[in-house]
Simulated scan of single mutants.
Amino acid sequence: MQKIKTALLSYGMSGKVFHAPFLELHPGFELLGSWERSKKLIQEDYPNVKSYPSIEELLADDVDLVIVNTPVGTHFEYAKKVLLAGKHAVVEKAFTTTVAEAEELAKIAKEQGVKLAVFQNRRWDSDFKTIQKIIQEGVLGDLVEAEFHFDRYNPLLSPKAHKETANDGAGILKDLGPHLIDQAVCLFGSPKGIFADIRITRENSLVDDYIDLLLLYEDFRVRLKAGFFVREAHPAYTIHGKKGSFLKPRGDVQEDDLKVGKKPNLDSWGTESEDLKGLLHTEIDGKIIREKIPTLQGNYYEYFDGVYHSIVNNTIEPVTAQDGVRVMQIIEAAIASNAQQKVISL
């Protein structure tokens, strides 16, 4: 099996939790190491890899693929260097800070003949995959409205300075917003317009920490919400159609399991608790049903497998640069809508 030699641009939480375990699990990747500016941690977990002192030394090595998992405000600069060096790239969300940056990266990747993928791993969450299946089966009838939540209760500011300093990459709109927006676009396509309410709710916060985005489609509406003052969670997904409804709590276990050091596998990984099943209340073949629906298994391995095949077999990336551009277009429109207090057409 062809090996893709891969390096990370950071070995903080995302490198340790979301990337390295799956690169280790997948037989098609070889983890070469990570750029580490101060703390040298990757060799504690992977003794045979390298700790690069600079991005220049990393790019000078025999690297095929680079994971750009640094703060959002640096994505464009670093991804551009990676692509111009002729390396394939995976860039975390938010893809960039502006649409113009996203479009330029997509253009460079095409000119260089390399693959560029956005890391929208939440498409492979167990709860989202279940929602996707319900919608594809059409058991709700024509859709009327959907509401997605990514809520938390955490009034304290993050200790990570880049998350709480006013900059183009900070704030919940570019942190949790890309997850919600990407899922909506993945399911329903691009909206025709958006109305956005973006606020600061935490004491002493300098960055937005509450979003309420209303995506306008031809015949239905999608509301996306995220905030830090939700002790009692709404369903993560509420979908109403002309025949019925489906409500699903957020239940994907992958992030929590990865954070405590559990290693992913191809068998039981990403299996939700039975008590987090979604509720389907609809009419099928003239019969009213109201029952709990088994949750599909989630696994971020599928994303990395998609990246592997895109490079080795020249298939389309699992989340394309154009997908990233579309999310950034909606984010920019949301910012404009909030500032002008009006619907912005897309």
Score class of each variant (00 low, 15 high):
Ala196Gly: 01
Glu291Lys: 15
Leu279Gln: 06
Asp142Asn: 15
Ile316Cys: 14
Phe150Trp: 12
Ala85Leu: 04
Leu156Lys: 15
Ile335Val: 12
Asn313Trp: 08
Ala146Lys: 02
Thr130Met: 02
Glu218Arg: 10
Gly244Glu: 06
Phe128Arg: 00
Phe148Ser: 06
Met1Cys: 13
Val185Glu: 02
Pro53Ala: 04
His75Gln: 07
Val185Asp: 02
Val343Arg: 07
Tyr46Ser: 07
Gly86Asn: 05
Ala170Tyr: 01
Arg231Pro: 08
Lys259Pro: 09
Ala321Gly: 12
Tyr210Gln: 10
Glu255Met: 14
Glu30Thr: 15
Glu317Gln: 11
Gln43Trp: 09
His88Phe: 08
Gly28Glu: 03
Lys342Gly: 14
Leu65Asp: 00
Ala100Asp: 10
Gln254Trp: 09
Ile289Thr: 08
Phe29Lys: 03
Lys5Thr: 11
Leu23Gly: 03
Ile289Ser: 09
Lys39Gly: 09
Leu173Arg: 01
Ser14Leu: 13
Arg221Cys: 03
Phe246Ala: 13
Ala226Gly: 02
Ala94Asn: 04
Ser34Leu: 09
Lys115Tyr: 05
Ser38Phe: 15
Leu31Arg: 06
Val66Gly: 03
Pro47Met: 12
Glu283Met: 13
Asn121His: 13
Val343Ile: 15
Asp219Leu: 07
Ser245Met: 13
Lys174Trp: 01
Ile344His: 02
Glu103Ser: 04
Tyr153Arg: 01
Met1His: 13
Asp151Arg: 02
Lys259Trp: 13
Phe148Ile: 04
Ala226His: 04
Ser205Trp: 08
Asp219Thr: 11
